[in-house]
Design a protein around this nucleic acid. Structure first.
Length: 484
RNA sequence: GCCAGCGUAGCUCAGUGGUAGAGCAGUGUCUUCAUAAGGCAUUUGUCGCAGGUCCGAUCCCUGCCGCUGGCACCA
């Protein structure tokens, strides 16, 4: 049987349209998934919609649309984005899915409950009626009011909720992380989590009353008055999407996840809460977390109030999806923050896609066309190509996309130098007689380049491979016209 | 405030106890197969500031300044 590979991207919050940060994460996940698919591994790439949070209900009310309709519409925007980015998601699991996700989450709840890790406790807090949320005293202004609704007194509300015994799993989670059974990349995020785990863990509340949840979300088993609270069921989408609670065989085949791709803001939930739930339920824990950074735009944090939120769809429409993928992967070191600027984007496009890759494939094609060379036709074979390039293989396997792409550019630059030394054009149409085998070497170089680029910019790679697959290779119009 | 990390050419960054490198941008030049693309050559830096250790520090130590991230029930 083939090796399996199960990878997830974080499930986006569907209360607003996707921004460039979502696009970055989708692309990173897609590249890793493509890499494993190309190696012949059976692969699932999953994401979905985080739909059960109260904020979705509030956003829907504000928009004057029924909740289900509201989240369905937003979901489509995310799905469409994944497609226009050229990302292949195999599963898109919605949190509001009552057929699969609800029973899966109730199953997880029951398992934790059976382990004795769920108990009822009354919770008292300051509640803002305007925001419909609880606040800690330090989150409020000097008058003890929330910033959104100054002048409005907060109510002290007491409510019974279910709590999860997170405290019980503290040392087990530390072991999991230090032993590497739950690998966290990069190291700095791992250290952050471990330093967080030095403090005693408090139990966390995992349910809300129906009133406060506005009757939205997964019902708590055997208690019609409560709904599950965000993280408990949201994280479980990683399981509910692959059969947990509705197809045991499928679930056993795929779980645990080989890697969760997430943003740095949610690393704790994935590194601490999630393994704790699973340990409690007696289920395997995920093997790795890959934590990426955030985007700034022209050096500034992205925010709605600044009005610098970038819509990835506009960039795709203007430049195409592969150039955008290329930029994400090449310019942003995978695990640190990166800046988006259109100026830099265009610079990189011209330097590496137009002048580098595009020009290289074009000049070789023209030389082949002029010499009328015929070569053995080529069938794509990623695994044997990647084997040939040890350093690149390592860089890609470790998800160091920026370094991987730089290596490819170095490879191209080496062939540009070779062309300059050999000057095949001076022999016009009898290149083969004067430089025997040279054109074939060039053709192999182009084919290898395209193979190596298949996980990164799949459409472009296929185009090059198609151009270079046949017995005779002809010149075509530029793939990446130079930008003015 | 506490903890971690960072501060190196115009930009993005790599790097080492022996007085600094790459890519992009800039300049010059060669060349024409190619998308006015490519090759070669080349300018610029008190390696954040101030001390200390050392024969010698950008790399080690201390202090300071600046920046970033983390500091739970928030998705």
């Amino acid at each position: 049987m083939n090796k399996k590979f199960y990878i997830t991207c974080a499930i986006p919050y569907v209360n607003a349209a996707p921004h460039i940060g979502h696009a970055l994460e989708f692309v990173q996940g897609d590249v890793v998934a493509r890499f494993h698919r190309l190696l012949g591994e059976e692969t699932i790439l999953l994401s979905g919609g985080d739909e059960n949070a109260l904020k979705n209900v509030q956003a829907a009310e504000k928009a004057g649309v029924p909740v289900q309709q509201f989240i369905d519409e937003n979901n489509v925007k995310f799905l469409e984005l994944t497609r226009s980015l050229g990302c292949q998601f195999d599963v898109w699991q919605k949190g509001s899915d009552t057929a699969r996700h609800f029973p899966a989450s109730q199953k997880l709840w029951n398992l934790c409950d059976k382990a004795g890790d769920i108990y009822k406790k009354s919770y008292e807090g300051l509640y803002c009626v305007g925001c419909e949320t609880f606040y800690e005293p330090e989150e409020l202004n000097e008058q003890g009011e929330c910033f959104e609704h100054p002048g409005k007194k907060l109510e002290s509300v007491k409510e019974e909720n279910y709590f999860f015994r997170l405290s019980k799993y503290q040392s087990k989670i530390i072991d999991l992380i230090t032993s590497g059974n739950l690998a966290i990349t990069p190291e700095t995020r791992k250290n952050e989590v471990l330093s967080f785990l030095k403090q005693p863990l408090q139990d966390i509340s995992i349910s809300r009353s129906n009133e406060r949840a506005k009757n939205w979300g997964v019902p708590v088993p055997n208690d019609a008055t409560q709904r599950m609270y965000v993280w408990f069921d949201a994280l479980n989408i990683y399981q509910s999407g692959i059969g947990f609670g509705w197809d045991d065989e499928k679930y056993k085949k795929w779980w645990p996840a080989d890697v969760h791709v997430i943003g740095k803001g949610i690393s704790r939930f994935h590194a601490v809460y999630w393994p704790a739930f699973l340990l409690s339920a007696g289920l395997p824990t995920p093997r790795a977390l890959f934590v990426h950074g955030y985007f700034t735009v022209n050096g500034q944090k992205m925010s709605k109030t600044l009005g610098n939120v970038i819509d990835p769809n506009e960039l795709i429409a203007k430049y195409g999806n592969d150039p955008l993928r290329y930029y994400f992967l090449r310019e942003i070191p995978a695990t640190s923050d990166g800046d988006f600027s259109e100026r830099r984007f265009r610079e990189l496009y011209n330097a590496e896609l137009a002048n580098g890759l595009g020009n290289f494939t074009a000049r070789v094609a023209k030389l082949c066309e002029q010499s009328k060379i015929t070569v053995a036709s080529y069938t794509s074979d990623f695994p044997s190509v990647i084997q040939k390039y040890e350093l690149l293989h390592k860089q890609l396997a470790q998800s160091r996309f920026d370094e991987y792409i730089k290596s490819i550019q170095l490879f191209i630059a080496g062939w540009d130098q070779s062309l300059e030394e050999n000057k095949p054009w001076q022999y016009k149409d009898n290149i083969e007689e004067n430089l025997p085998g040279y054109l074939s070497t060039l053709i192999t170089a182009v084919r290898d380049t395209a193979e190596l680029l298949r996980p990164i910019i799949p459409e472009t790679a296929e185009k090059i491979l198609a151009q270079y697959s046949g017995a005779s290779i002809t010149s075509e119009k530029p793939m990446f016209p130079r930008l003015p």
